[in-house]
Design a binder for these strands. Sequence first.
DNA 1: TGACTTTGACAAGGGTTGTTGCCAGAATTG
DNA 2: CAATTCTGGCAACAACCCTTGTCAAAGTCA
Lengths: 230, 230
Amino acid sequence: MQNRPARNRTYGGVDANLREEDRRKKLIEAGLEAFGTRGYAKTNIRTICRLAGLTERYFYESFGHKEDLLCALYRELVEEERTYALSILEDPSIESRVAALRSLRMFYHRFQEDPRRARVQLFEILGVSPQVDREYQSAMRMLSEMVRLFLGRMFPDIDRETLNSSIIPVGLAGSMIHVSHKWVLDGFTMPLDDIVNQVKDLFTAVGKHLAGGVQAPERSSGSAVHAKEG
Amino acid sequence: MQNRPARNRTYGGVDANLREEDRRKKLIEAGLEAFGTRGYAKTNIRTICRLAGLTERYFYESFGHKEDLLCALYRELVEEERTYALSILEDPSIESRVAALRSLRMFYHRFQEDPRRARVQLFEILGVSPQVDREYQSAMRMLSEMVRLFLGRMFPDIDRETLNSSIIPVGLAGSMIHVSHKWVLDGFTMPLDDIVNQVKDLFTAVGKHLAGGVQAPERSSGSAVHAKEG
DNA sequence: TGACTTTGACAAGGGTTGTTGCCAGAATTG
DNA sequence: CAATTCTGGCAACAACCCTTGTCAAAGTCA
């Protein structure tokens, strides 16, 4: 009670906080392996700990539930992506078109390079719980934002206001995701460069349209839509 | 052993096969309710049976696993959608632009009308198992095909070959799905007509681009993409 | 060296679920 | 009416899992 010498002391030469952080990282890596191969639903905590080379107790040291690990892993993957993309898109020394293409390529390359990432980011994250849904939602908002940056860089003529008010970047983000879905489910048969080029075409089509003097979409522009339901 | 009078007899005035079919339908409806509200992962078979007003035994009469029910439900939802869309898109008596818009509106309207459908079709179907993944994959192929039909109807000038070889319909299908995702997660705050109009704009942009004499994309057209990774 | 902390291995309690089986009563046919 | 089938309710069993706890061994510091 009174004589407590060096609580949280160093161990194996490393500080206590650092050791905990190390374990956390091991668990996240194990989560990537487990969720990315056998899937989130079919993975239990024991398995994660075995893969991490740790005991169950250490799981609860860093995470409250399995969901928490999934969220942490997902957030890390997405954050990595964002960092890469921003470092390319915001580097003024790279020619705009090259920067745009390179960031697009990075997006797909990362999935092919490690399909576990693809599985987690594209499939395992959905339909787990409201908490995880919110995580997904914010990541997708971020991706739409990246698309806005992307379009702004590739097509400087696009009106900022148009870009911000339009749902089109959301749609394009969806295209990127969905093309990834298909690519993954097809087992990455199509070559990476083909994927990138085709998506680039899609972006180009939309970008040109936006740059071509289309004002921000007014509300309920087409009343033909109101025609009676089938 | 010898005296077996009327096996599979009628009951309550209905044939045995019909009764089984009725129970199956009840189970699918219960699946929609359960998966569409509390979610697939958090639903057990007992709950489904309670909702269906049936006993566990009858679940195994029609389905082998929970997954089978999910697949059956999903297939039914998608099939319904396809039927509606085709009935609109292939009706030559409807003006092309109206038909296209109406089918697009139907797509989103169905989600708003019954959010359980949205949850099942958009969220619960992913990351369950390879079997379910295949179900999703085929549904998405179908949706891309519908988009092709849609574009063909809205922009008769688009070259058939271009349309068939391009990944763009896949991308647009992804946009539709993704916009739905966002719409659902935002609690359907944006009015249906706004959603439809914005997606229409996206389709228009791409359609005009495709119709504007762009030939089928040649392989590896842009070598700038090969620039070194970050 | 000795007191103390950290770690790893595993057990055990408590809960949930899938799946099958049983049984009494209602409905039906002959 | 009698025999039989269908139905609903529920029990039971095993399997799985989460979560906490125990305990000995290894490591570390004074």
